[in-house]
């Protein structure tokens, strides 16, 4: 792997990506087209995020990679290894130690700081795509701020189900201008999109980069009388007892028995080592 340039991509390509990132930061929520490269991992598996991370990495960085909130899921392991091999940077599981965090489907529970960059992997960057399949049309809709259709979809949800039936990839409006897809994070994470950290979104296959700069206003679309509600399972974490985190539901036996655990593995472990306990924690470990 040493035959490849630092962080795999050549410097020319990184410059091109950085230009796209800067443009994205300058126009919050706007999808910047970029000449996405063919990466040695499949499209749809984080090629956009990997390219953004590669363009941001310096030898002094500490990288954390999560998928579904966990550091040890296979794709997170694979991407982390890729950067260990090609960039030889320090890696960590701890959110607070990382300078760059690449994520798929979650925002870490531990609050981010101004010194951090959060890179999202994005499958379909266009929030209007499933209302209007044509790129030529959706670009026009963004340019003219024609977002009525987006609310029609929410209206239809309420008319049919009594609620807005979008549970993840919940659309937001950035700085009162662009409607943006926050990537398929659960809507529980949406409030965390207003953050001191730089948030960068990379969609490799769709050749788009967009950004939410620090302290940018991000509003989840809703109605006054049906306000946006971040949702989580009504349980406590069975390992650390947290009642404020996003939980995974795990089936533990053939009788439908289940436990709930934090999806953010680092957050959960940190709490456990600080002495927090849940229903299923081994008793002898209690401090």
């Amino acid at each position: 792997m040493s035959d490849y340039n630092f962080a795999y991509l050549d410097e020319q390509t990184k410059r091109m990506i950085r230009r796209a990132i800067l443009k994205g930061v300058a126009i919050p929520g706007y999808q910047v087209p970029f000449a996405s490269r063919e990466m040695p991992m499949p499209y749809g598996w984080g090629t956009g995020g990997v390219q953004v991370t590669a363009a941001c990495l310096t030898p002094d960085d500490t990288l954390k990679v999560i998928d579904q909130g966990a550091d040890d899921t296979t794709n997170a392991v694979s991407i982390r290894k890729f950067f260990e091999n090609t960039a030889d940077v320090a890696v960590t599981g701890q959110t607070s130690e990382a300078s760059i965090i690449q994520t798929r489907h979650r925002i870490p529970e531990h609050p981010l700081t101004e010194d951090q960059i959060l890179v999202y992997q994005v499958p379909i960057p266009e929030p209007l795509r499933f209302l209007e399949p044509r790129e030529t049309e959706t670009r026009k809709m963004h340019a003219l701020e024609e977002y009525g259709l987006m609310h029609v979809k929410l209206y239809e949800d309420i008319a049919r189900h009594g609620h807005i039936a979008t549970a993840y990839a919940y659309p937001v409006k950035v700085e009162d201008r662009y409607v943006m897809d926050p990537s398929p994070i659960p809507k529980f994470d949406n409030p965390k999109l207003e953050s001191p950290a730089i948030q960068l979104f990379g969609a490799g296959r769709e050749q788009r980069i967009y950004a939410v700069p620090p302290f940018t206003k991000v509003v989840s679309l809703d109605f006054e009388d049906h306000p946006f509600e971040p949702a989580r399972a009504e349980h406590e974490c069975d390992l650390c007892g947290a009642d404020h985190t996003y939980l995974d539901e795990v089936i533990i036996d053939d009788n439908g028995g289940r436990m709930f655990v934090c999806s953010d593995t680092d957050y959960c472990e940190t709490r456990q080592s600080a002495g927090h306990r849940g229903k299923f924690s081994p008793k002898e470990n209690a401090a």
């Binding site: 024609e146 977002y147 009525g148 259709l149 609310h151 029609v152 209206y155 239809e156 309420i158 008319a159 049919r160 809703d222 109605f223 006054e224 009388d225 049906h226």
Partner: peptide
């Protein structure tokens, strides 16, 4: 018309396009 959107949604679209954000009122 938008054939796959309810009658209410069809009528409501213009209201939403000009910024009406109260579901009850729109309905």
């Amino acid at each position: 018309l938008r054939m796959s959107v309810s009658a209410g949604g069809n009528v409501g679209e213009r209201l939403m396009a000009v910024g009406d954000r109260h579901y009850g009122n729109i309905r």
